[in-house]
Amino acid sequence: MWWITLIEIAVFPIVAILLGLLLLGIDRKVAARMQRRVGPPILQPFYDVRKLFIKDTVIPKKSTWIFDFMPLLSVVSLFIIILYLPFMGLSPVLHGDMVFILYLLILPSLAKVLGGISSGSPYAAVGSQREITNMMGYEFPLVTIIFFMSWKLFSFGVAKPFSVASFTSGVMWAGLGTLGIAGALLLLFVMLLVIAGELSRPPFDVSSAGEEIAGGITAEYSGRNLGLFYIADALKLIVLTTLVVVLFFPFGISGFLGIGGWFALIADSIFYFIKVLLLMIFSETVLKTSVSRLKVTQLVNAYWGSLLMLSLLGIFIIFIDMVLS
């Protein structure tokens, strides 16, 4: 059966790109609608990517060879994460660890930063060190939530508490009283903010701040490299929303409707798409239209201060609930 995984390894990334660009289009459309604007057509990201691939790719003289290689690496690392997560509601193609996925989530933004640093432009250097500060920031709440959940799995006596498969058994809502539900919702709220931070969406988009540092990390990128970064951004949206789906809403719809075979597959993937869509809208489209940008110094305080305290509070509430029940 290993050749099926090979086919899946080849097919899934293409599906992920299409889905990601579609989601970005819907995101821009919903954001425009929220500002009572007509907003671009849903397929606008596809036109943007096509245009970027037609334009020339300028390589600055001062930049090193890494500048040209990093867009490739960031897209490849995102493809790999997709294989390890239950994409389209199906079971993950390759079986991996939660710690592995957490570390692999660093790779795309690290590749972007290395590319930005080696492009030689001061704008990109400022942008990339802000991106690293952002990365150092959002890891703390993210890691606390994920390790708490695997610890909860461990206390339930699951054999491999860190593997993704055991996460998809709906650990978050298992055995929770009303108090626990409140704690879990608090964790969901923190997770949505962390997702917005990881995608460097408006409240946290210090790294690609258009006005202050002309274009941030991608100041020197153009044409096909910029197209790859555009695709990487779309893929990251898919990956992160799937991560939240794995953590908080892993249950499929087909079992509920009781249909088997191919229909179950389609029903699951549609339900998955709806979940991802709703998560995206609530996590970053709402934020994009309502909140303005944080300063770099406020960034780390926001993550390590308020968001971390919120997640610890949520964990504490759930802990009390587990003790009571």
Binding site: V38, P40, G210, A219
Partner: peptide, 13 residues
């Protein structure tokens, strides 16, 4: 934006 026109911050884009 409905024509797909976007203001960008670097001539490279």
């Amino acid at each position: 934006e409905r024509f797909g026109i976007k203001a960008v911050s670097s001539p490279r884009h």
